[in-house]
C-alpha cells in the first residue's frame, strides 16, 4: 500500500456493522496535516463510529486505517500513534473518585509528560478550571467534566485531536474557548477532526466539511 506522507489520516474502504446492521459501507476519507475537518450527519449516520475507527477504539470489519502513515495493527506503531493523538468522546472517560488534578496527573504520567504541574496549570487556566483542581470529578457539572476531558486530551499537545461533538454540554463561554483552541491548533499546523451538529461551530472551526449524506448511496 502506498503511504502518502502528506496525509495525516487515510481511511480506505471502511465498513462496519453492529449486530448485522451496516452502519458504514465502503467509506473512504483522507486529509492533510493542518486541516481542521468537521463531519456532520443525522443521528445514527455513523459520525461517532467513523471517529472511533479513526482513533483506533473500534476495529473496522473491513478496510484500512492509516494514521500519520502508520497502522494500529502493529503494536509498536499503535503505541507511537497513540502518544501523539488526543481524543474527546461523549463519555468523559475520567475517574469520578479522583480529583481533577489527580486525573490529569495520572494521564500525563501515562503519556510521559515532563513538567506535569506547569502543563496542568497552563491547561486549567486556558479552560477556566483552576478553581476546580482539588475537587473530585464526581462533584463536577457535566460542562466542567467536558472541560476536564478536553484538558486531558490536550496534555500531550497532540498532532491530531479527535472530538465527538466537542461543543455539546458546554456553555457559551466553553464553546468560545473550544473554538479558540481549535483555531489556535490550526494556525500551528496541527490537525483537528470532529463531529458536530452545530453549523456555527462548524463555520468557526473547520476548513473542510464532510457531510455523511453524500456518502449514503456511494
Amino acid at each position: 500500500m502506498k503511504v502518502n506522507a502528506k496525509k495525516v489520516l487515510m481511511l480506505t474502504k471502511i465498513s462496519k456493522s453492529y449486530q448485522n446492521n451496516l452502519v458504514i459501507n465502503n467509506f473512504s476519507l483522507d486529509f492533510n496535516y493542518g486541516d481542521s475537518v468537521g463531519i456532520i450527519g443525522k443521528n445514527g449516520s455513523g459520525k461517532s463510529t467513523i471517529l472511533k475507527i479513526s482513533c483506533g477504539l473500534l476495529k473496522p470489519d473491513s478496510g484500512n486505517v492509516l494514521l500519520m502513515g502508520k497502522s494500529f495493527d502493529s503494536t509498536e506503531d499503535g503505541l507511537l500513534i497513540k502518544s501523539r493523538m488526543g481524543v474527546v468522546l461523549h463519555e468523559d472517560m475520567l475517574y469520578p473518585q479522583l480529583t481533577v488534578f489527580e486525573n490529569l496527573n495520572f494521564y500525563s504520567k501515562i503519556l510521559g509528560i515532563k513538567n506535569v504541574n506547569t502543563k496542568i496549570e497552563e491547561l486549567s487556566t486556558l479552560l477556566n478550571l483552576s478553581d476546580y483542581l482539588k475537587i473530585s470529578v464526581s462533584k463536577l457539572s457535566n460542562g466542567n467534566k467536558k472541560r476536564v476531558s478536553f484538558a486531558k486530551s490536550l496534555l500531550n499537545d497532540p498532532d491530531i485531536l479527535f472530538a465527538d461533538e466537542p461543543e455539546s454540554n458546554l456553555d457559551d463561554n466553553g464553546k468560545e474557548i473550544v473554538s479558540k483552541i481549535f483555531n489556535d491548533r490550526r494556525k500551528r499546523g496541527l490537525t483537528n477532526f470532529f463531529s458536530t451538529h452545530s453549523e456555527i461551530f462548524l463555520e468557526k472551526c473547520s476548513n473542510q466539511l464532510i457531510n455523511l449524506k453524500d456518502f449514503e448511496n456511494a
Binding site: 482513533c55 483506533g56 477504539l57 503505541l79 507511537l80 497513540k82 502518544s83 493523538m85 481524543v87 468522546l89 463519555e91 468523559d92 472517560m93 475520567l94 475517574y95 469520578p96 494521564y107 501515562i110 503519556l111 510521559g112 486531558k152
Partner: peptide, 12 residues
Amino acid sequence: NKTLQSLLVMPV
C-alpha cells in the same frame, strides 16, 4: 465511566 476505553487511546 468508560475509563478502560480512555486507556485504549493512550500509549498503554
